[in-house]
């Protein structure tokens, strides 16, 4: 049987993690190709709807990356993301999707290796969890 290749949606902040991912690319750091990165102006843009949409569209995991607290281009946008992710986990848990399928990570523009590392470990986690139950529905 073919190994399960998860589909991960990454919501990356334009000012830090997206540039960080760029850095990982230009420094030729290898990381799993499972993540589909969507660039947002701020991780604070991520709300329940986007995450729900990602899961119902067939994502096995959602990775939200933003600036370290205090570094946000809009002061507190990333803190919004932190609260929402913390609040959404019990919800995902309760309806059987699983809170582990949602991860938040702070990655600055200079942390190219951290992008690779995060994507690697998150892909591993999702591989272990298997396909999202919603995925079967979406197909």
């Amino acid at each position: 049987m073919e190994e399960f290749e998860p589909k991960i949606i990454g919501f990356f902040c334009n000012w830090c993690s997206y540039t960080g991912a760029d850095l990982a690319g230009t420094s030729r750091t290898k990381y799993p190709p499972n993540v589909r990165i969507i660039r947002l102006m701020c991780s604070g843009r991520v709300d329940e709807r986007l995450i729900a949409k990602a899961f119902t569209a067939g994502a096995d995991g959602v990775l939200v990356c933003g600036c370290h607290p205090g570094d946000c281009h809009y002061q507190k946008g990333n803190l919004n993301a932190r609260r929402r992710v913390a609040g959404l986990k019990p919800f995902l848990e309760a309806i059987g999707i699983g809170g582990e399928r949602l991860r938040l990570e702070w990655i600055s523009a200079s942390e190219g290796p951290k992008v690779a590392e995060t994507v690697k470990s998150f892909t591993q986690t999702i591989k272990k969890l298997g396909p999202s139950p919603l995925k079967k529905e979406a197909e």
Binding site: P69, Q75, L79, R82
Partner: peptide, 8 residues
Amino acid sequence: ELGQEGVE
């Protein structure tokens, strides 16, 4: 919260 660094 600005002073709190972690993800969790």
